[in-house]
Amino acid sequence: MRFVVCIKQVPDTTEVRVDPETNTLIREGVPAIVNPFDLYAVEEALILKEKFGGEVTAISMGPPQAEEALREVISMGVDRAILISDKHFAGADTWATSHTLAAAIRKIGEFNIILTGKQAADGDTAQVGPGIAEFLDIPQATFVRKVDELDMEKRTIRLQSMWEEGAEILELPLPCLITTVKELNEPRLPSLRGKLTAKKAEIPVWGFDDLDVEEAQVGLAGSPTQVIKVFPPPPRTEGELFADVEPAEAAKIIADKLTEKGLL
């Protein structure tokens, strides 16, 4: 089985703030991490590889420092990693990102299952996974919370794709793409040996000339969407804080509000 996992390096969103003067993101000093959702994708690929054999390749599109993120997943057990990096790819939206990643996966060649996180913690779009599946014209299952069975003979995978009120049980032929949610597994921590391997690993960098893509379809130029304004979220209306009220009084305050809202 050949697994390809797409991982993204993102700023730790808990630390991101907006500069009130310029309304731009303050990125300085914000640590970069592997998108937390992608770790479930990595873990699932490793679990399946351990059971059925094969190879796990991680790819990431991003600036040169995204290499760190790839080393991190190598330390978890990923076999090889490729960094997709080029100034032409900068500023890509989800259309251009999925286009470029799909081209990279085509270049990798044979694959059976592609895994992505459900969404990236910076953009939160959940669009790149399905976008890659569409470009590669393969079936997809999104928000996968459980893999029930990988049937090596039939070359199918049965899994649970999450909805608001439950989950669909689906059977997909390989090759296919799945996007992963937290419920799927518990990502492992890097092992000591993994860390050593990661330190020494060669991570090839594929640029614009290495992929079969056109300039007008990658990076900013290939992105249909444009961000025109960034601003801090509007502050919520000043709330009222009741610090010194008896429990019975507090209960009355809440109940009055619920009555006022017609909830009783």
């Binding site: 969103t13 939160d124 601003f231 801090p232």
Partner: peptide, 17 residues
């Protein structure tokens, strides 16, 4: 829409498609 975990809001357009 909110982005970066709700820390910022962004307004997005799509002029040419």
């Amino acid at each position: 829409r909110p982005a970066f975990g709700g820390n910022i809001m962004a307004t997005i357009i799509c002029p040419e498609h």
